[in-house]
Design a protein around this nucleic acid. Structure first.
Length: 542
RNA sequence: GCGCCAGUAGCUCAAUGGACAGAGCAACAGCCUUCUAAGCUGUAGGUUAGUGGUUCGAGUCCACUCUGGCGUACCA
């Protein structure tokens, strides 16, 4: 539809040459009376032409030659907006299209042939996934879903590191618990991992090996077993909310394949690094950042920056059209270094899109639950899923803008009540399914022959809303904003519920009843497609 | 100190530089002998943290101030 209007303006530009000086932008007005699509082109032209915007608008409208079977009317309103009103019959045509395309309605091929990589979660295997990781996981998976919906072929990737200090501490934490189990006196340092899961891993080792491991190194079987058990739990947690990764990328492989060494040499060759105080520094100040940072410690061990840069180079060399990184806000200081490092080595980092999401604050009984993996003072993702269910967890995590803090009220989420927006959407779907079961018994069938009879204000609003779904999906995908989809679905469900209360099917005359069946079938398709994109179920009965 | 993010109705949050800033919850008043009341309709609730600026037009962009979160490691 937008394309049709753009071509109209294009044709008018033959007579009004000034029209080609601006890109016409069409937007959907918030208010019904302002039409279906609106453009501000006359307002934009007012200054350069030194004429009143309403006069320009009038000149444009007088020049437009349109097909009255598509457009009902064109109005000039307010300071000089041009509002386009669709012919209701044209609008209703969308119903047939939705029913025909069914599960493909909303999807598009704008980016087909493009390959994308979405890296998310990327938690090191030092403990179970917490609620904080949960937000990352759900946003990442949903962003990937949306990119797929507009044609991308997407690889979901999880980057992790099983070496380094934290993992040593983890291994030693398990060892100490193990020694405790076999009866030795131990002291358990405060900075060690305090969680119960450490004791469980130690217990498994004791069951398997008795007390034969007393003299083993904490970096050997203790660390290994811990990583194995924890990773297996992480994967289970993710699977339980419908998330499956294509690739788990181990940082260690970058060492094995000499990528770390090579990156280091490349920096040196380009004179982007130097030695000072026994460490190797990266000249980030020359690459546009604030200050130089250490990439290899004086101990010879790289800091996280070097492998992170090497990892991104690895991703860049895999020739993706789009690389998405999703981090919590605690990482917001690290990505500029990584991007600057890659750019310094001559890579085009414009394909990398870094998304930062803000933290989740859990409140319970009005109190904020502070979380730390190490102190074991946290709520795990598994616990949350067990409490409120997959759908509520997924929905709560994406329903807010990721750049805003998320307040997760445990008490509220636990309530399986009308306070919960997830049920509002699912209820709409269940209601439609129920009506369809009922109408089938009455021998009423779906027909798009008389959709022109769907002319009440409520029906028209609903139809217009449905027609906007593909654009909403595209917009959400291109701007990485999953919460737009949930907002759209809530609005759509709201319009449907209003329709349900105003317009009856059983009892209406046959043509109208069958047209309404077509309409609610279209609504069901849109809601089901939307729920699927968000990874939620669409129950047929509630 | 510096950097990133936020501040919108009592609470949780929407709003693609556009037209009268919208929902849900909570409050109040209505709607079930007819397709699911987990629903609908209505009322009330606002100096969009503040001060300037840019613009025909600012919740949105810019500057400064205030408040909160997260960073600012030879931790990841």
């Amino acid at each position: 539809m937008k394309n049709y209007l753009i071509s109209l303006i294009g044709n008018a530009a033959i007579k009004l040459s000034y029209l080609s000086s601006v890109e016409p932008i069409f937007s959907i007005p918030k208010i019904q009376g302002h039409g279906d699509l609106s453009t501000n082109i006359a307002l934009l032209l007012s200054k350069p032409l030194n004429k009143s915007p309403r006069d320009i608008a009038k000149e444009i409208v007088d020049t437009l030659e349109y097909d009255s079977s598509i457009l009902d009317k064109i109005e000039i309103a307010g300071p000089g907006f041009i509002n386009f009103f669709f012919n209701p019959n044209y609008s209703s045509g969308i119903i047939s299209k939705i029913i025909e395309e069914e599960e493909n309605f909303g999807r598009s091929n704008k980016y087909s042939g493009k390959r994308g990589n979405v890296e998310f979660v990327s938690a090191n295997p030092t403990g179970p996934l917490t609620v904080g990781h949960g937000r990352n996981a759900v946003i990442g998976d949903t962003v990937a879903n949306m990119l797929e919906a507009v044609g991308y072929e997407v690889d979901r990737e999880y980057y992790f590191n099983n070496a380094g200090r934290q993992m040593r501490v983890l291994g030693d934490s398990v060892k100490k618990r193990y020694l405790e189990l076999i009866g030795e006196q131990i002291s358990f340092p405060e900075e060690y991992y305090q969680g119960e899961y450490i004791k469980e891993i130690a217990l498994k080792l004791q069951v398997e090996f008795g007390d034969n491991l007393a003299n083993e190194s904490e970096e050997g079987i203790f660390k290994q077993k811990a990583e194995e058990e924890i990773f297996s739990d992480i994967k289970k947690s993710l699977e339980s909310i419908g998330i499956v990764f294509k690739k788990y990328f181990n940082e260690y492989s970058l060492y094995e394949q000499n990528n770390i060494q090579k990156t280091l040499e490349d920096f040196s060759k380009k004179n982007l690094s130097y030695e000072k105080d026994g460490a190797i520094w990266l000249k980030l100040s020359e690459l546009g950042n604030q200050e130089d940072k250490v990439i290899v410690k004086s101990t010879g061990e790289p800091t996280y920056r070097l492998p992170d840069i090497a990892y991104h180079i690895n991703k860049l060399e895999r020739n993706y059209d789009l690389i998405v990184d999703l981090f919590g806000s605690d990482h917001n200081a690290t990505y500029p270094d990584v991007l600057a490092g890659c750019a310094g080595l001559g890579y085009n980092v414009l394909t990398i899109k870094v998304l930062i999401h803000q933290f989740v604050t859990i409140t319970e009984k009005g109190e904020i639950v502070k979380m730390s993996t190490r102190k074991a003072n946290y709520i795990t993702l598994d616990e949350l899923v067990a409490e409120v269910g997959i759908d509520v967890v997924r929905y709560f995590f994406i329903m807010r803008n990721m750049s805003s803090h998320l307040n997760f009220d445990l008490e509220l989420a636990k309530k399986h009540s009308d306070e919960n927006p997830v049920f509002y959407l699912q209820y709409a779907n269940a209601r439609i399914c129920s009506i369809l079961r009922m109408t089938a018994e009455q021998d009423l069938i779906l027909s798009t022959e008389h959709v022109d009879k769907l002319n009440s204000e409520t029906e028209q609003s609903l139809i217009k809303k449905l027609s906007q779904f593909p654009e909403e999906v595209l917009y959400s995908a291109e701007n990485f904003e999953p919460h737009k989809i949930s907002n759209y679905l809530e609005e759509t469900a709201g319009l449907f519920h209003r329709f349900y209360n105003e317009c009856r099917i059983i009892g209406s005359e046959r043509d109208l009843a069958e047209a309404r069946i077509a309409l609610i079938t279209a609504v069901r398709i849109v809601i089901a497609n939307g729920l699927k994109m968000l990874g939620l179920s669409a129950p047929e009965r509630m």
